[in-house]
Each structure stands twice: as structure tokens, then as C-alpha cells.
């Protein structure tokens, strides 16, 4: 009797252990199921590189290049802001901050990670957007730049915590060796610690960027949502994620528009998959 019970439980544990694989496969499968239908009306090439996104015109024009470029622009801006600040903060926490400050800073970073993106979007709308508008004398502050700044804040917790981890796990002897040779603390960090932790730091940056590309609500609320190819960081843009979030509510199930939005989902899924697998490889290389 006990044997039977344990047999059942252990099988259940195995099944749940496999659940993650099952769900990833299921997500991909359902995205494909709904998204691939769009390629009956538009070729994959024209879908990815078509310059106009007018999904409800007749006939619909389903080119997502403006959205891809919108995402890229916002992401690039966010990366430029968040990478130096994030890695710098990670070095500060791992190497320089005294223990109590360190704990407080880590808690602060966790706090930032916990703030819902819709709240950050809201705050961006009421503070950052007017600021950007008045600084650059623009007709609207809903620009790629505003999105980049806000998204930088969403990437930072990821970058800081993973990079800090990577620095922390560099063997102490490396640093001690450098210091023993007469290097200053900074030289030890710059020439020894950071190179030794480089693959972890790289993974941190990639995962941070992954978070940015996938971010939806904040970006939708503050980038202005103009589905045109952006010509400046101070122009409104629309990202892949925001397009799905903003338009799926109106798309009729089974329409071209509906399929197209799922195809955008496939693109996002593939991007995040690639980023995560690569980052994972970097993290494992470290060990």
C-alpha cells in the first residue's frame, strides 16, 4: 500500500519536473498554430521587412519593420543607459560598499525589480514625459527616448544582480594576488576581477536586454505608439510588444490582424529564446 502510494507520488514528481519543458513547447506550439496562418497572405520576407503596418486597411498591410526598428531603437537607448550604470553599480555593491550599505543597496535593487511595469509606466507618463517634452521643445514627450530611460530602469535590477553575482563568485585569491603585487584596488577590479567575471557580466547584460525587449506596459504608455519607421530618438515609436498589447483587444479572432499579431509573438518568442539560451551558455561557461 505504502509502496503504491510512493510509486504514484514519484511519478507525479517526474511529470511536474517535465512540466517546464511541456509549457515552453506548448507556448511555442500555440504561437505557431495561430501565427503561421498569416503567411498565407504575406510572405515571411515581406512580413519581416515590409515598411508599412496598416493592419486594418483593406487589404491589410502587414510589414513589421517599423515595429522591429522601434523595438531596436528603444532597446539600444535603454542598453546605452543601463549597461554602464548597471555594471558600475554591480561593481560598487560587490567590491566597494561596506557590508551594511551593501545589504541596503541590494534591498533597493530588489525593490526596483518588484515595482510593476504599469506603475513605472504611469510614473514615466506623469514625470518623465513632460520633462523630455520641455527639455527638447517637442510637440510631445511620448518618444523613444522616454521609453529608453524608463526601460533602462527595468533592465538595471537584472543587470546589477546577475553581474554582482558574477563578481562575487570570482575566487578571492585572484584579487588577493593582484593586490599582493602592488595593484590598487581599482586596478585589481579593472584588470583582474572584471575580466574574470566577464562571461557572467555579459550574461547579465544580455538578460537585461532581454527584459527590455519583452517589456510591454511601460513602453506602451510612454513611447507614443506611432507605427512608422522612426527617424530620431526624439520621435514617437511603437515596439513589437506594444503593438500586440494595444491591438489584440480589437483584433477579431481568426482575422489576418489576429494572425499577424501572433506572428509578432513568434518573433518575440524566438528573440527571447535566443537571448536566454546564449546567456545561459555564458553563465555555465563560468562554472
Amino acid at each position: 500500500m505504502r509502496k503504491l502510494k510512493e510509486f504514484v507520488i514519484e511519478k507525479l514528481i517526474l511529470i511536474c519536473g517535465l512540466a517546464s519543458i511541456f509549457f515552453v513547447a506548448l507556448i511555442f506550439l500555440f504561437l505557431l498554430k495561430e501565427g503561421l496562418a498569416v503567411f498565407k497572405t504575406v510572405s515571411p520576407f515581406n512580413f519581416l521587412f515590409g515598411k508599412s503596418w496598416y493592419p486594418i486597411s483593406e487589404p491589410p498591410q502587414l510589414g513589421i519593420l517599423p515595429l522591429i526598428l522601434g523595438s531596436l531603437l528603444v532597446t539600444l537607448g535603454a542598453a546605452i543607459i543601463s549597461i554602464p550604470i548597471g555594471v558600475g553599480c554591480a561593481v560598487y555593491i560587490a567590491e566597494i560598499a561596506p557590508p551594511r550599505t551593501k545589504e541596503a543597496l541590494k534591498a533597493g535593487i530588489e525593490l526596483l525589480a518588484a515595482i510593476p511595469s504599469v506603475v513605472l509606466g504611469f510614473i514615466g507618463m506623469v514625470t518623465l514625459v513632460p520633462l523630455v517634452r520641455s527639455i527638447f521643445h517637442l510637440p510631445t514627450g511620448l518618444t523613444a527616448l522616454s521609453g529608453s530611460i524608463m526601460l533602462a530602469f527595468m533592465a538595471m535590477p537584472t543587470i546589477v544582480s546577475i553581474a554582482e553575482d558574477a563578481l562575487y563568485s570570482v575566487p578571492k585569491t585572484y584579487k588577493e594576488g593582484a593586490l599582493a603585487l602592488g595593484a590598487t584596488h581599482w586596478q585589481a577590479i579593472w584588470r583582474v576581477m572584471l575580466p574574470a567575471a566577464s562571461s557572467g557580466v555579459l550574461a547579465a547584460i544580455m538578460l537585461g536586454i532581454g527584459r527590455v525587449i519583452g517589456e510591454t506596459m511601460a513602453v506602451m504608455m510612454i513611447t507614443g505608439n506611432a507605427a512608422v519607421i522612426p527617424n530620431s530618438i526624439l520621435a514617437p515609436v511603437r515596439t513589437l510588444t506594444a503593438t500586440i498589447a494595444a491591438e489584440m483587444g480589437e483584433a477579431v479572432v481568426g482575422s489576418e490582424h489576429y494572425f499577424a499579431l501572433f506572428a509578432v509573438g513568434i518573433v518575440l518568442f524566438v528573440i527571447s529564446f535566443a537571448i536566454n539560451v546564449t546567456a545561459d551558455l555564458f553563465l555555465h561557461k563560468r562554472q
Binding site: G17, F23, F30, L31, I244, G265, S272, F273
Partner: peptide, 19 residues
């Protein structure tokens, strides 16, 4: 399995919405 978990954690939230 570990890779799948990492990927589940990385899937954009709006893609979960689609799914």
C-alpha cells in the same frame, strides 16, 4: 528542464498573454 525554466522566465509577458 533547466533551460526550459530559464526560457519560461524570459518569455515576454505579452507573449504569455497571447498564449
Amino acid at each position: 528542464i533547466k533551460l526550459a525554466i530559464v526560457n519560461l522566465a524570459g518569455v515576454p509577458s505579452v507573449v504569455y498573454g497571447l498564449f
